[in-house]
Computed example of a mutant assay.
Amino acid sequence: MALNQKVKNLIQKLGEAIHESVSESEDIAGVVKNIREQGFDVLLMLEATIGLNEVEAEAEEVTEAAGESTDGPFTSNDLTFLKSLRISLTEDDSTDIPDATEA
């Protein structure tokens, strides 16, 4: 998916906001202080993965793939989430799920 410059800038700002939130967190600073008092130096590295989905296109694809309308108990975002977990709402696919005891 090609991203325009405005979206790239917004993603950059989101990363900066996450970094600032962690850096200024009193809870994190307190725990780090306690660890240092125990004689350890702390190096904190966090990784954030930011995923983007085009809302309209993705919602239509999920609705069509699931064969469901969004009038039911699930929204198109619910269907997208379930699809990302490889969960299908059709009864035909229920036999394809392996039993956890077989593994």
Rank of each mutant, 00 (worst) to 15 (best):
K6C: 01
K6H: 09
N9Y: 03
N9Q: 11
N9K: 11
N9F: 03
L10W: 02
I11S: 09
L14D: 04
L14Q: 05
L14G: 05
G15S: 05
E16A: 10
A17H: 10
I18G: 02
I18W: 10
H19A: 12
S21I: 00
S21M: 02
V22M: 08
V22S: 01
V22N: 08
S23H: 13
E26F: 00
E26G: 07
D27A: 02
I28D: 04
V32G: 02
K33V: 00
N34T: 12
N34Y: 07
N34I: 05
I35S: 10
R36K: 15
F40W: 11
D41I: 01
D41L: 03
V42A: 10
L43I: 13
L43K: 15
L43Y: 13
L46W: 03
L46A: 03
L46S: 06
L46Q: 06
E47S: 08
A48S: 12
A48Y: 15
T49A: 10
I50L: 15
L52K: 05
A57M: 05
E58H: 07
E58V: 07
E60F: 06
E64M: 03
S69K: 02
T70S: 05
P73C: 01
D78A: 00
D78H: 06
L79C: 01
L79Q: 06
L79K: 11
T80W: 07
T80V: 04
L82V: 00
L82W: 03
L82H: 02
K83P: 00
I87L: 08
S88M: 06
T90P: 00
E91C: 02
E91M: 14
D92V: 13
S94A: 14
T95H: 11
T95A: 15
